[in-house]
Design a protein around this nucleic acid. Structure first.
Lengths: 207, 207
DNA sequence: TACATAAAAATGAATGTTCATTCTTTTTTT
DNA sequence: AAAAAAAGAATGAACATTCATTTTTATGTA
């Protein structure tokens, strides 16, 4: 059975424009949420402020999200997905372990460096009960690729036979602290710092 | 000029008992704050719940703390002080660098292991705008000793010439992630894990 | 293409609840 | 009997969410 749609080109164009506008609004809400939660914390960011920053009526938020918790959950998941996509962007599963790790690590550092607000938001979510458990679980899944790389590294005798939690703790986690410290004005991160950080990470897990 | 006090022993005893009761109540409030904030986040822990958990009337909280923000600030500072005291408990400034670092690191690991709730509370404060800036600054000061050790280590060519922020990021910060992961039920930390963690930390900073 | 009407989206104001803080009263201590 | 500490109820503000209305967009007709 074939279903035929008769649609003019101009019709498609207006539909696309509308969709885009909707996406823009949603993105504005998510961006506002990140900025306000970073600066004031979840407990001190009312929906009214989020709405104002996104140039939208408070009521409009509820056309895009069920409620405040849902807004934060979805923000977390979206940012985490963006982060993960960036982390594994150029990685191929058949790369040598050391090169693969270096590539992924640098992609992550790059993301956190250039998307500092997003990175800080994630750190906040990962260290508090701000997002609900299902959302957190969903955010974690995406790291499968890194775990597989590490398993391969252990089999090949390149990486220490440590728990993946330890590997994560000593390679990825420190970056969050550095980014937060930078945002608080405590340190100004340079290329050198990033290289030192990479060496520290690698030294802590290489066999 | 001498000032003489005429006080009976029993009088002193009742005063001490009263003082102790007051301290107990304050501690109960702080403990309740930690537990509730850890489980629900600052945004979802009303004063009424804190009062209930501490077996106290909501109004009584205001005899001990100015307001909610003050309660959280003071809780942060007290826990941080307890943490710092534990961290440097057996350390002497004339110890060899490597031994000193190992001792301090293990004291910190020990504290976080055995005072998991407190450690998680600190992590939450350090990663969010939950406590105000003056309190955060006050919490940081106490780490002077560790910074001095690292400076000495760098001079002696034992520790890499890295920023103290990097040293902190790669030795102390990972522990917070591990403790949180354990509390979430993701991993069950053993003696072996702690030893592996120490080696990872040391490898990342030793020259 | 121009207009009319229906549908959808967005709004600002209204609602009801939650909660930090204060007030008045009661209990405990001196 | 006075003073201090603690309590529970009261207060008022802030806020998440909903509602009634307005504005914008889509659709059908001439």
């Amino acid at each position: 059975m074939n279903i035929h749609f008769y649609v003019t080109l101009s019709r498609i164009k207006t539909i696309m424009a509308k969709l885009q506008k909707s996406i823009d609004k949603r993105n504005a809400l998510i961006k506002a949420t990140i900025a306000l939660v970073n600066n004031n914390g979840f407990h001190a960011t009312p929906m009214s402020k989020i709405a104002k920053m996104a140039n939208v009526s408070p009521a409009t938020i509820y056309l895009y999200f069920e409620n405040k918790q849902d807004l934060v959950n979805k923000t977390y998941i979206e940012v985490k997905e963006k982060f993960t996509a960036h982390a594994f962007n150029h990685y191929k599963a058949d790369m040598p372990v050391a090169a693969g790790f270096k590539l992924i690590w640098n992609s992550i550092a790059d993301f956190k460096f250039n998307n500092c607000e997003e990175a800080i938001f994630l750190a906040q979510c990962d260290n508090t009960p701000m997002v609900d458990e299902p959302s957190r679980q969903k955010g974690i899944q995406h790291f499968q690729t890194l775990l597989e790389l590490w398993e391969r590294g252990k089999e090949e005798g390149i990486i220490k036979p440590m728990s993946n939690y330890l590997l994560y703790a000593y390679t990825i986690i420190p970056l969050s602290f550095l980014i937060i410290s930078q945002r608080r004005g405590a340190i100004q991160l340079t290329k050198d710092h990033v290289e030192e950080a990479y060496n520290a990470a690698w030294n802590s897990i290489k066999l």
